[in-house]
């Protein structure tokens, strides 16, 4: 069941944080095997950020993602770079406000994570909205696990905001899934 997930965008969007929360959900709360890695430049913000999570029910050898089962792209640059490295039956989730391109495949799930986060009061939780969406669309981790991992990973005073972001992401994901996208 090896699932290779790539989350990418630009520095500061919480791409790496999202990958850590997803990996922790699988490894600690769903009792699966997970391996998370990231690549980033020396810049603190603004450069390209890419994180990878592999989830499996048996020990993980190669820790790198080559052709992803799931791609979450939160910038046009990230989609342009990694949009093709997805399996034919793989899942693509994008933020349509940030990935505005005519190249988008029909099967892509548009989740306006940044706009949803903004409506919740803080764009910083856009990454958590995406985690809610990917959970609802793919079931790669359980809803209980992603919730537990998120709550454990964020500062206590932002617990409620993150829970709302997660719920909003799940709702958006379920809605698209119900429409038969993908």
């Amino acid at each position: 069941m090896r699932q290779e997930i790539r989350i990418c965008g630009f520095g500061g969007q919480g791409v790496i944080t999202a990958s850590v929360i997803l990996g922790k959900a699988a490894a600690v709360y769903d009792n699966l095997i997970a391996c998370q890695s990231q690549s980033y430049g020396p810049e603190a913000r603004g450069g390209a950020a890419r994180a990878e999570v592999i989830i499996d029910d048996k020990p993980i050898g190669c820790p790198g993602v080559h052709v992803a089962d799931i791609l979450i792209a939160m910038s046009l640059e990230a989609f342009t770079r990694y949009g093709r490295d997805v399996k034919p039956d793989g899942t693509i989730i994008i933020d349509p406000d940030l990935v505005a391109t005519s190249d988008l495949p029909e099967r892509a799930y548009p989740i306006p994570a940044t706009r949803i986060a903004e409506n919740l009061g803080n764009t910083v939780v856009a990454n958590i909205v995406m985690l809610g969406a990917v959970t609802a669309i793919t079931g790669v981790v359980s809803e209980e696990a992603i919730h537990a991992s998120t709550v454990k990973s964020v500062p206590a005073r932002f617990k409620e905001l993150n829970e709302r972001a997660l719920a909003a992401g799940m709702a958006a994901g379920r809605e698209l899934k119900g429409l038969g996208r993908g």
Partner: peptide, 9 residues
């Protein structure tokens, strides 16, 4: 650097 920054259970 790869293993040092890689997260696992």
């Amino acid at each position: 650097g790869e293993l040092g920054h890689m997260r696992e259970r």
